[in-house]
């Protein structure tokens, strides 16, 4: 007989976690009113939305959405640039590798986490109340949105940089600030650029929904047409946004090849 080693007993995470997850799932489905019967009975109603959605009115979209689309792109450009510009210094303060003070590190890290917990549309709602309806509120909302994502991605990248160059700079007698500028910053700049392009793309996607709460962009048109159930006018907008996003993706792939 071969000697098969005994299987180690499963960890508590598995023995307790999996039954708990299943129970929680069942409970969640019950609470959200999961009901397949109603769903199949009313499935025919989807025609209200899907028929016009798959029957796009391109001529209408070309005539009426150009301004709003430009506005969407402008919101995304401004918000991603400003948000990432703010995030760049903040991330260095929110990383253990470059911020030697434990307390200020914790403070900056918590601030970034806090900004990240509030969903983008909530920011938009708050800013429309604070500064009035319009694209300015959308820009502010997306600044918070890009600040949060860039802060998280970049500070984690800084955490894992190669400490060698920093040590070398320190050995030549440079101050902490000089060390960070000459040895940490150049290491993460390519990542910063890549993240920036990714965030720009996310901002374009997000600005589609900003209009729902009056924060400008092409979502404004989607919202007014949705109320009148004119989904035939909405689907061209979705396609155009998709094309824009794909173009940006291609562009960022090209840029990344050049700089990385």
């Amino acid at each position: 007989m071969t000697n098969i080693p005994k299987k180690p007993p499963p960890s508590y995470l598995v023995t307790i976690g999996i039954p708990f997850a299943i129970l929680f799932t069942l409970f969640s489905f019950q609470r959200v009113g999961f009901n397949l019967q109603d769903f199949t009975e009313n499935l025919a109603n989807r025609a209200i939305v899907t028929d016009p959605l798959f029957n796009p009115k391109w001529s209408w979209a070309w005539e009426n959405t150009a301004d709003a689309l430009v506005e969407t792109v402008q919101i995304a450009i401004l918000a991603s640039i400003v948000g990432c510009a703010f995030a760049l210094p903040l991330s260095f303060y929110a990383s253990r590798a470059t911020n030697l003070n434990k307390y200020s590190y914790f403070l900056y890290k918590s601030f970034l986490n806090l900004v990240r917990t509030i969903p983008d549309l909530f920011w938009a709602m708050l800013f429309t109340v604070a500064v009035g309806i319009g694209p300015f509120a959308g820009v502010l909302a997306l600044i918070m949105f890009s600040l949060a994502i860039m802060g998280k991605l970049l500070s984690e990248t800084i955490d894992s940089i190669d400490p060698g160059p920093m040590e070398a700079a320190k050995a030549t007698g440079s101050s902490h600030n000089q060390t960070v500028f000459t040895s940490a910053l150049p290491q993460v700049l390519p990542n910063f650029t890549a993240y920036f392009l990714y965030i720009f793309e996310l901002c374009i996607r997000a600005s589609v929904i900003l209009g729902l709460v009056g924060a400008g962009g092409v979502g404004r048109i989607i919202e007014t047409q949705r109320i009148f159930l004119r989904f035939d006018r909405i689907s061209p907008i979705i396609v155009i946004i998709l094309v824009v996003v794909i173009l940006i993706e291609q562009f960022s792939v090209w840029i990344r090849k050049r700089i990385l």
Binding site: G33, R46, I48, V49, L212, R226
Partner: peptide, 19 residues
């Protein structure tokens, strides 16, 4: 399709609500 657009599609089928 963004989640929000999908929600538009499901609204006439499942009505207003969590489902």
């Amino acid at each position: 399709f963004p989640e929000l657009i999908l929600a538009f599609v499901f609204l006439p089928i499942t009505g207003l609500g969590a489902f």
